[in-house]
Computed example of a mutant assay.
Amino acid sequence: MNAKDPRSPGHPSRRPTRRQRAQRSGQPTADAHRPDGVRLQKVLAEAGLGSRRACEQLIADGRVMVDGVTVRELGTRIDPETQSVSVDTMPITTHTGKVYLAFNKPAGVVSAMSDPEGRPSLQDYLRDRPERLFHVGRLDAETEGLLLITNDGELSNRLTHPSYEVSKTYLAEVRGPVARDVGARLKSGIELDDGIAHVDSFRLVDSTPGYALVEIVLHSGRNRIVRRMLDAVGNPVQRLVRTQFGPIALAEQRQGKVRELRPDELGKLMEAVGL
């Protein structure tokens, strides 16, 4: 027998594996397939990954994994309530009935679904939503910017739990000038009434006589923490805007606008808290 013959002893076999044969024959991958489940391309389309045809192409290209197994078969069915799905290694949310929104909160709106004092509240912007929603963390009434709203209790709990250290980014207009050592002081820690607080990063964005614009990143969720820290270093806040919550950025979203998170944003948010 010729040494180059693939049937010769010691020569690696070219016989396809069981999974490769299943892929070629169009049979579902047993590791992921649930006979009574929902077609994978339908799950992807409903998660916002594109049209059904576009999602079929994602599967065919080997970009979709279910429970850690790459799936290429269009006949695969899954249970979206119990199985994990990722596209290009980014987890996506397949649970039905879950809502994930980003709201650019104007000043004067309280972070509550209703207000006994009659002030503007989140309900004024969410009247058309049938779901029972709640906000993730809060912004004080005069602080503007990004507020996440959902009905996913587990995600909300993780985003607000200190152990996950999800960062928040703020732009603050303050009274100037800002002393050169302010950033170092804020990073090393400021003594407040409820304990020491510190920022992850501090950057002077702009400065004019009597005025400065600074960017602060921190993961603390304590009440009015940014205002109290800047007041403690002698730079009271005139205006405060949260521009980012974890991987979700406010970007060009108009004030007062509510939008659904994109699948890639939601995947990054889930990844940040281990979901």
Rank of each mutant, 00 (worst) to 15 (best):
residue 212 A to T: 03
residue 137 G to M: 05
residue 178 V to F: 12
residue 182 V to N: 08
residue 171 L to D: 11
residue 168 K to D: 13
residue 173 E to S: 13
residue 173 E to M: 06
residue 145 G to P: 00
residue 185 R to I: 01
residue 162 P to K: 03
residue 161 H to R: 02
residue 184 A to F: 06
residue 211 Y to F: 15
residue 156 S to D: 12
residue 162 P to I: 03
residue 169 T to M: 03
residue 143 T to G: 03
residue 141 A to F: 09
residue 188 S to H: 12
residue 162 P to C: 05
residue 187 K to T: 11
residue 146 L to I: 00
residue 139 L to F: 12
residue 158 R to M: 06
residue 178 V to E: 06
residue 184 A to N: 10
residue 187 K to F: 02
residue 194 D to F: 05
residue 193 D to Q: 09
residue 142 E to N: 14
residue 203 R to W: 04
residue 197 A to K: 12
residue 141 A to R: 14
residue 140 D to V: 03
residue 179 A to F: 07
residue 151 N to H: 07
residue 209 P to R: 13
residue 211 Y to M: 15
residue 163 S to D: 14
residue 207 S to G: 08
residue 189 G to Y: 05
residue 190 I to E: 00
residue 147 L to V: 15
residue 212 A to S: 13
residue 195 G to F: 13
residue 207 S to D: 13
residue 207 S to L: 11
residue 166 V to E: 07
residue 210 G to Y: 07
residue 203 R to P: 07
residue 153 G to F: 05
residue 202 F to P: 01
residue 179 A to Y: 10
residue 164 Y to P: 09
residue 210 G to L: 04
residue 142 E to V: 03
residue 158 R to A: 12
residue 207 S to R: 12
residue 197 A to D: 04
residue 163 S to V: 14
residue 182 V to A: 11
residue 157 N to A: 15
residue 162 P to V: 04
residue 168 K to A: 12
residue 205 V to N: 03
residue 145 G to H: 00
residue 181 D to L: 07
residue 180 R to K: 12
residue 150 T to A: 02
residue 138 R to W: 10
residue 165 E to Y: 12
residue 208 T to Y: 10
residue 214 V to L: 01
residue 138 R to G: 05
residue 141 A to H: 10
residue 201 S to I: 02
residue 145 G to W: 00
residue 203 R to Q: 15
residue 178 V to A: 10
residue 166 V to C: 10
residue 154 E to W: 01
residue 151 N to P: 09
residue 139 L to I: 11
residue 158 R to K: 13
residue 179 A to S: 14
residue 191 E to Q: 14
residue 137 G to P: 05
residue 173 E to T: 07
residue 192 L to G: 02
residue 201 S to M: 02
residue 145 G to R: 00
residue 184 A to T: 13
residue 178 V to R: 08
residue 147 L to Y: 06
residue 160 T to P: 12
residue 162 P to L: 07
residue 175 R to E: 13
residue 157 N to Y: 08
residue 184 A to D: 15
residue 212 A to V: 03
residue 153 G to S: 03
residue 149 I to F: 00
residue 194 D to H: 04
residue 203 R to Y: 08
residue 159 L to P: 07
residue 186 L to S: 11
residue 137 G to Q: 04
residue 138 R to M: 07
residue 172 A to M: 03
residue 164 Y to S: 03
residue 188 S to A: 15
residue 139 L to R: 05
residue 173 E to W: 13
residue 205 V to E: 14
residue 159 L to I: 12
residue 151 N to W: 07
residue 150 T to F: 01
residue 147 L to S: 09
residue 203 R to A: 15
residue 159 L to C: 10
residue 178 V to N: 05
residue 214 V to A: 01
residue 154 E to C: 02
residue 145 G to L: 00
residue 171 L to K: 09
residue 139 L to K: 06
residue 138 R to N: 07
residue 146 L to S: 01
residue 160 T to Y: 06
residue 197 A to L: 08
residue 189 G to F: 03
residue 204 L to Y: 13
residue 152 D to I: 01
residue 166 V to L: 14
residue 199 V to F: 12
residue 202 F to C: 02
residue 207 S to P: 10
residue 175 R to M: 09
residue 166 V to Q: 10
residue 154 E to P: 01
residue 209 P to H: 05
residue 195 G to A: 12
residue 170 Y to P: 04
residue 155 L to R: 07
residue 168 K to H: 12
residue 157 N to K: 15
